[in-house]
Amino acid sequence: MVESASLWAVLAVLPLLGGAAVVAVCADRALAARAAGQPYGPRTIAAGVGSDTARLLVGQRRTTLAPDRLLWRLGLIAVPTAAVLAAAVIPFGRWAVDDLGVGVVWFNGMEIATWAALWAAGWGPNSVLSLVGGYRMVAQGLAYELPHMFALIGAATAAGSLQVGTIVAHQRHLWFAVWMPVGFVVYLLSVLGFSFTGPFDQPAGVDVAGGVFAEVAGPDRLILAAGRWLLLTAGAAMAVPLFLGGGLGPVLPAWAWSTVKTFAVLGVLVGVRRSVPTVRLERWMPVAWTVLIPLTIAQDLIAALVAVSR
């Protein structure tokens, strides 16, 4: 079903993931421009994205008093790195860089690396607002992580495997999203959580002057912003093999189905990001722990019963 490509496939991860992320950024800007009543034609949007990127590339790096430069830089770089490493187990049609036997746990681990990355990125500049942003990411992680893990466990239990390729193969007749809707929705919510975007953008909140973004400028800011979009894209792409049947589908080749489904999920996430206001963490935490954890555990029980009866 899904085969591990040779090592050169590593080179294809960043262009594919990055390309999809750029499309998502453009869609996001177009939605924002339309909501503001400004022109949102493809050329305007592309020019805007291009000039913003160029401005960040040549921009000055900001320095603060007594920063922890090492942890700051490591934290910033770790965000896009984690996204690319997570994408290594996501199948693009029939190929994945490495269809690890423990692919789901690998993805989970790389996504959790963003906690450490953002905390370090918030700690580094020795600035209050950055630090608040970093701490918010940890709090957010504690809220979304347990329901997220149970959503992943649901898909893995139903397929009886932690291997992403096997999970895809088990959805030949019915997508997991159809009979495990709770797990699917919780997974999508946690994608917004670990890419600190949309209703879960408190770590980078406007109320703390951008939080983890507060003291990063120039290329540093580009790396952090790109990492955030790469995480969102990787999360959307992983939803496809976990819940939407991966590359399975009629007529079109597998890679085309992977692409179509990934952009559909990405479109939904960008739409939510643009239309749902920020949720305060202390409001989200009780919902996550008292509503979503029991729901996802009940979902896992159903998945386990289905797996046992098969």
Binding site: L100, G101, V102, V105, W106, N108, G109, I112, A113, W115, A116, W119, Y135, V138, G141, L142, E145, L162
Partner: peptide
């Protein structure tokens, strides 16, 4: 022991971040 190794990665990142706090 792939599973145990990757689980250690998962758990240690979480635990060390919380420990830092």
């Amino acid at each position: 022991l792939d599973y145990l190794g990757v689980v250690i990665v998962v758990m240690m990142i979480m635990e060390m971040v919380i420990m830092a706090v």
